[in-house]
Design a protein around this nucleic acid. Sequence first.
DNA 1: AGTTTTCTTGACTGATCAGTCAAGACATCC
DNA 2: GGATGTCTTGACTGATCAGTCAAGAAAACT
Lengths: 208, 208
Amino acid sequence: MSVTSSPNDRTLTTRGKDRRDALMAFATTQFAEKGFHPTAVSEIVDGVGVGKGVFYWYFSSKDELLLNILRDALRDLRRNQNRAIRGADDPIQCLELGIRSTLTWSIEHPEVIRLVMFAWTEEQFAKDMRRGRRIVISDTARHISRAMDAGLIEQGDARVMATAVRGVSDELARQFAISGDLLDDSVIETAVRFCLRGVVGDSTRTPT
Amino acid sequence: MSVTSSPNDRTLTTRGKDRRDALMAFATTQFAEKGFHPTAVSEIVDGVGVGKGVFYWYFSSKDELLLNILRDALRDLRRNQNRAIRGADDPIQCLELGIRSTLTWSIEHPEVIRLVMFAWTEEQFAKDMRRGRRIVISDTARHISRAMDAGLIEQGDARVMATAVRGVSDELARQFAISGDLLDDSVIETAVRFCLRGVVGDSTRTPT
DNA sequence: AGTTTTCTTGACTGATCAGTCAAGACATCC
DNA sequence: GGATGTCTTGACTGATCAGTCAAGAAAACT
C-alpha cells in the first residue's frame, strides 16, 4: 500500500515490537526520574542506542508516547484487580481485595505513579486521566453499591466513598513512589482497615 | 551598597511588592491552566504588561517563582488550619476541624492543588514538597496521637493514619481542582465521616 | 537640585529541542 | 536476484525559550 502509514497503525514484526517496548520502558524510567519535559527525545533514543528516526517510526510524537505508557498502565492495573477479585462473592471482600491489589500494583510501579501525577497537570493528558479515573472509581463504587443493596452497609453516596478509598490508596502509593517512605505489609493493613471502617462504619468486621 | 544584590534579599517598596504579587498571581493561574513548562516567562510578563527584566528583578529564575508560590500556599493553608482549630480542646474535634479547613481551603485554591501535583514530579520542587508534607502530616498525626493517649481511640500508627486522612482530603481536592466535579457540603460531610470512622473505628460519634 | 536606590525596558544571546527527511540497511517472499 | 515492505540513520530545520544587559525612567532621600 502507501508508504504514508502512521506509527499508530503499523504492522510490527517481533523485532519491531521489542524496540517499541524498549523505548517505552526506558522513557518511563526517564520521565519518572527527570520529569516529562526535561527529558529530551534525543536522550531516550540515546539511552536505547538507536537513531532519532526510530522514535518517530514507532510514535507520532512525544505526547503520544506518554499517552501510550499511561493507557498500558491502566489496562495492566485493571487486569490485576480483576484477577485478584475473581472468585470472591461478598462485595465487601471484593472491595478489600481490590484495595489490596491496587496497593500492591502501585508499590510495584512507582514510576507510573509519578507519570500519572504529571499527566493530571496538563490538559492534553488530563483528558485521558479523567476517563481513567472514572473507570477506576466506577469499579470500586460498584462493590460499595452492591454492599448497600445487600444491606451490609448503610446507604450513602457510593461514588464519593469510592473516591475516598482511592484517595487513601493513591496517597500511600504516592508517598511510597515519591517520598521513598517504606510501605510494608503493616502499612497496607492499616490502610485497608481504615478504608473498610470508613465505608462500613464499624470495626467489628476487621481482623486485628 | 553594591548593586549586585539578588532578587531574594531586595528591599521592596509598596509598588514593588504589588508588582511581585501581580506576577505571582498571574503566574499561578497560567501554570495551573497550561502547565509549568509550557508557560513561558514572556507570557507571564506580557500578561502583567511589563518588560522581561521586571521578572528577573523580583525572581532569580522561573523555578524560584514556583517555589515561592508553593511556600506561600503552604503557609496560608497552615495559618487557616490553626485559626480553625483555635479554641477546640478535644483531639478528635481538632482533627475534624483540621480536615474541614483543609477541604475548604483546597476548594478555594484549585490552581494551587494543580501546581502541587506538578511540583511532586520534578526533583528540584519535590524536595520542598517532601518537607511540606512532613509538616502537614505531623500536624494531623499530633491530634491522632493525643486521641490515642487520651484513650479515645485504640492505639495504632498515627502517622499512617494521618497520611490516610490527608489522602482523602487531597484526593477530593484534586477531583474538584482537576475533574471539575462538584464538591458541595454533602461531599465534605461524607469525607469527614469517612475519615473519622477510619480513625475512630466507630460510627456512634458521627452525626447524621 | 543633586544623589542614591528602586525599578523598568526590550532587543539580544546561546542553547535546547521536537520533529523531518533523504538515503540506505535489513528481512522476507516470490 | 529482484521486489516489497520494515526498519534505521543522523544531520538538519525552524522555532522556542530562559536568562542577560546596557540603558534609562521614576521615586525616595538629603
